[in-house]
Amino acid sequence: MIRRALTAVHCLALLLAAAAAPARAADWRMEAAGSRLEFTALFEKTSAPGVFREFDTRLRFDPDKPADSRLEVNIKISSADMNSTDINNAIRGAEWFDFGRFPQAEFRATDIRRIEANRYVARGALTLKGVQQAVEVPFTWSAVPAPAGARGTFAGMEGEFALRRSAFGIGSGEWAATNVIGAEVRVKFRVRLRSDG
């Protein structure tokens, strides 16, 4: 009897707790097939596009309550491809990305805020070529219909921002001059995410 009453109280407490707690932010994993991370430099006043072929995104995020979010992006810098043998050979060197010493970059953010409707900004730290800098990454969030037969929830995250290469020592020595290779590099991303939660 006492035992049964305790169980009932226990159940009630659990129900109350569930109702009072905020909806848990979902955990999202990146679907590599639908995701792309591009960068565009300025080469002799001419647009020079490239991609990082390998990168991964992990996200804890509730679009309605972005306060408890966590965003982690890991980028394999040595997967950079500018679709030109000459340029690809150059950017692996110590004056540019220095693949040998810094093959990975990462972005970590725990501060994600809604700007309006489906637009957000993630404030975090970008570690690139051994330099850590505060970076703001704006993005739009959109629900994506699940492909036929797939389980889980799908979403898309895309955005664009600019970095100054000098802040990370990319293009050092005589390459620091910005008339030949521009100071600013635009970064553009389109990430497809899946949540099973």
């Binding site: 080469f43 002799e44 006043k45 001419t46 647009s47 020079a48 679709n83 030109s84 000459d86 340029i87």
Partner: peptide
């Protein structure tokens, strides 16, 4: 073919006449 970005006298971007191919 080398796919090096180039603008004539830094002004006029040159379109490619062949696909990139080392």
């Amino acid at each position: 073919a080398a796919n090096v970005p180039f603008s004539i006298f830094w002004l006029l971007p040159l379109p490619a006449i062949v696909a990139p191919s080392p």
